[in-house]
């Protein structure tokens, strides 16, 4: 409790976490395994945290691990701006500030039970989706068929190699991959991620579909799903925007009437009909 104003909680005050593991996954993506020093992070698939680097600021980062994994949480951070470049300098044992978890719009854990699930990921769009994919794998009997479509620019930008290998070896999850740019080291599919949609074997119309990737990707994936007669109330998109506060005050992440930080980041596509800025 604050000594001067008597408030229980300051929504802007980071809590300390310790870096358990830190390793580069490819040229740009850093994997972090963290534990909160005080209260463990109580989160749902789809939520994010604000990672704080004193002197540089904060960056909103999706939680990549499933809450079924206890005692730690995982982040994957692309080196792209000031704060993320500093996050890339973290080493095992370092302390880091965390606020959150944030986001009331999470993956529909309950509603999706019994349904076939399709995850369509573009590049690091896999990171937040992985939280729900692993949650489903840890509660496998509650859900129907799982298909993961993953599109990456080129094979050198792929990450979570061993986990992807495990998924492709399991019989209860189907992983389809493609890369945009062909090279000699890649034997698989070539083309954008929408080219994988006709290869989905399970019934698409009744499935729940989850999309996460670069901003340009959503429109094309939704169009491709429309051709397969997937209704928009079964499509969920995981959106990103500039964020500062994470708590619905600062206004940066606003998409028409929604705040990505409190109303999202996972939105049901049909609800975004009133938000033309979304996609």
């Amino acid at each position: 409790m604050c000594e001067c104003c008597g408030q229980d909680k300051d929504i802007y005050l980071p809590q300390l976490a310790t870096v358990n593991k830190a390793r580069m996954m490819n040229g740009t993506e850093l994997y972090l395994n963290l534990s909160m020093d005080a209260e463990p992070l109580d989160y749902k698939p789809g939520q994010f945290v604000e990672v704080s680097i004193p002197g540089f600021g904060e960056a909103p980062i999706s939680i990549s691990s499933s809450p079924t994994q206890k005692g730690y949480f995982e982040l994957v951070v692309r080196k792209i701006g000031n704060v993320t470049s500093m996050i890339h300098k973290l080493k095992i044992g370092d302390k880091i500030g965390i606020r959150g978890p944030f986001g009331n719009g999470c993956y529909p854990i309950e509603e999706a039970k019994g349904k076939n699930l399709v995850f369509i990921c573009g590049g690091i769009g896999l990171v937040p989706q992985r939280s729900f994919i692993n949650y489903v794998l840890d509660n496998r009997s509650d859900y129907g068929n799982i298909t993961v479509l993953l599109g990456t620019k080129c094979h050198t930008q792929r990450f979570f190699h061993s986990e992807l290998r495990q998924w492709s070896q399991r019989s209860d999850i189907r992983l389809l991959e493609t890369v945009d740019e062909k090279d000699d080291c890649w034997q698989g599919n070539v083309g954008v991620v929408t080219t994988l949609i006709p290869k989905i074997e399970s019934e698409l119309g009744s499935a729940f579909t989850f999309i996460c990737g670069p901003p340009v990707m959503y429109k094309f994936v939704i169009m491709a799903l429309a051709e397969e007669n997937v209704s928009r109330d079964r499509i969920f998109v995981n959106l990103e925007r500039k964020m500062k506060c994470g708590v619905g005050k600062c206004g940066h992440c606003q998409i028409n009437n929604f705040y990505v930080c409190v109303d999202g980041p996972v939105f049901r596509c049909s609800e975004l009909a009133v938000a033309p800025e979304a996609i």
């Binding site: 001067c4 104003c5 300051d10 802007y12 004193p54 002197g55 302390k95 880091i96 500030g97």
Partner: peptide, 17 residues
Amino acid sequence: TLVAFDLKGGYKAACDT
């Protein structure tokens, strides 16, 4: 000021009373 920090990772909430 929302939060005062030091580079070692200490954070303290600011409060204007």
